[in-house]
């Protein structure tokens, strides 16, 4: 490597994010992802089964509590499918946030000792969340097919399912961006680490996970739609099984917010990683 040259300076421009270097460490990202999986299920009885059990049990609980006891409307969709679809996409979001929000604090011991592109850590967390999601999504699709072929419930098949990948990528990006911003701010303010769990919980209830968007009207509906996850969860359900209606305007708004937050979080992360070792 004769032309290899790295210049380390005190100040770098805000847009100097070395993505090429991140790419050079793609093996590391792969190993981080493998590690994430290996570590969760080492010394457990059910192992990877938890991955499927978790959303199934949550969806059953939601169906019983919100569907049967509270009797919330699901807009004609089978209750179990309704809660499971909302829950699955929401879990992608929340696990993207949770997986990355502790990046700096949890890796302080490694970051303080050796250099590697710091972005590899949140990226690998995001990949982990997406793989987890895909397994759960496969489960969801099975449930969906069951309702489609073996019941008379109001489940439709539409070409809108082609939009699902977009929604999934957007959710993972948004969740990771929020998590990375939290991780950058927690370097200085530890309270946010505690608050993050609470915020995420509130956020879920401000997103139509356990209720339909149609059941809310007026100003509340507009306020809900300002939450970028609202249109995503709603559209996810629509594209999968034709529940509710497709929200377009606010979806575009949500996509813009996602892109802005994604860029913002990378810039912030990049700025914080340089000296965080001195202040953690």
């Amino acid at each position: 490597m004769d032309n290899y040259e790295v210049v380390i300076k005190s100040k770098t421009k805000w847009y100097e994010v070395n993505l090429k270097e991140v790419f050079m460490y793609k093996d590391l990202i792969k190993l981080f992802v493998q590690r994430n999986f290996a570590l969760i299920y080492k010394q457990t009885i059910l192992g990877p089964l938890w991955l499927i059990l978790n959303p199934l049990v949550t969806s059953v609980v939601f169906t019983v509590v919100f569907g049967q006891f509270a009797g919330l409307s699901t807009g004609g969709m089978p209750q179990f499918l309704f809660y499971m679809s909302g829950n699955t996409i929401w879990m992608l979001f929340s696990s993207s946030v949770n997986g990355t929000s502790g990046t700096f604090l949890n890796n302080a011991h490694i970051f303080g000792k050796v250099y590697f592109p710091r972005l590899t850590v949140p990226i690998s967390q995001m990949v982990t969340s997406v793989i987890n999601f895909l397994i759960q999504f496969a489960m969801l699709v099975i449930v969906y097919f069951y309702f489609l072929f073996f019941t008379d419930e109001a489940v439709a098949f539409s070409p809108y399912f082609l939009l699902l990948p977009l929604l999934i990528i957007q959710t993972a990006l948004l969740g990771t961006a929020v998590g990375v911003i939290i991780s950058s701010v927690t370097i200085k303010y530890r309270d946010l680490a505690v608050a993050a769990g609470l915020i995420l919980q509130m956020w879920m209830y401000l997103t139509p996970v356990v209720y339909t968007l149609d059941s809310v009207s007026g100003v509340m509906r507009t306020l809900l739609l300002l939450n970028p996850m609202t249109s995503v969860v709603n559209n996810f359900r629509f594209c999968l099984a034709g529940g509710g209606e497709l929200v377009t305007g606010y979806w575009i708004y949500s996509a813009v917010i996602t892109v802005l937050l994604a860029f913002g979080s990378i810039v912030l992360y990049n700025k914080m990683e340089k000296n965080f070792v001195d202040s953690i």
């Binding site: 210049v7 380390i8 300076k9 005190s10 970051f111 303080g112 000296n275």
Partner: peptide, 8 residues
């Protein structure tokens, strides 16, 4: 691991 205050 950390970056300089000044210099290169």
């Amino acid at each position: 691991v950390t970056s300089p205050t000044d210099g290169e």
